[in-house]
Simulated scan of single mutants.
Amino acid sequence: MRRYSFPARQAHRGEFSDEEFAVLFIIEHPDMDKTIRLSSHPTHDLSFDPPMWATYSTWRTANPTVDPFVYLPMETNLPSDQEDAPASGNIIVVNSTPQIAKLLRSVIDQATLHFAMVRAASPDLIEMQMSDLLVIDHDITAGEVTIEFSREPTEFEMDPEGVMTKERFPGMHR
């Protein structure tokens, strides 16, 4: 069971609540010069010309004013914390510039994604987070870009893990 702060529980249970949540994303890849830091909520004005918004949070950064989470209008499906459900989700953004598709097509290896859910009023308080997810697929259409992410697939795990010694597998050594 996931634990949330008391204000988050009140906002979630409230029928008409003015509490808003933001999802912060960090996408890293060795071929990229800088990590991509995205926010699902326009918390603060970043610039007026062109108009840009950002969320300032100390999550995974030493100086939030230097490395803000830039707001990008998006839809997201976050992974569930249930044991029988896979830890996978997606981000859907409007395909507004050709740079998004160009960046996604230029990466061959899988990128790493981290996300945190915070309250917009207090973005330093992390309500939920998942780290080291892999960007496993992307779909680019004329109108939107969908980025799929998940945990490392179980096919890549060693089976069985370790060496088949007498101590670990006593039934095989009789």
Rank of each mutant, 00 (worst) to 15 (best):
E144Q: 13
F115G: 04
L125F: 00
T154L: 15
I147D: 05
A142C: 03
Q110T: 04
S5E: 11
T141M: 05
F115P: 09
G171L: 14
D49V: 06
D18R: 15
D132V: 03
T165N: 06
R168A: 14
P160C: 10
H138T: 11
H41A: 08
S88D: 12
D139S: 13
G14V: 02
S17A: 10
M74N: 06
N90T: 12
Y4F: 14
R3K: 07
Q99G: 00
T146C: 07
I136R: 13
P160R: 04
V107G: 10
M1L: 09
P51R: 10
Q10I: 00
T58I: 13
P68T: 13
Y4D: 05
D139L: 12
M128L: 13
R37A: 10
I92Y: 11
L78G: 06
T65P: 04
G89R: 02
H138E: 02
A11R: 02
Y71D: 00
D137Y: 01
N90Y: 13
N63E: 15
N77W: 09
L133W: 00
S40R: 01
E157D: 15
T35H: 11
G162M: 05
Q82V: 01
P68H: 10
A87Q: 13
I147E: 02
M1F: 00
H44E: 15
D49R: 14
T154A: 14
S122P: 04
L125R: 14
H29F: 06
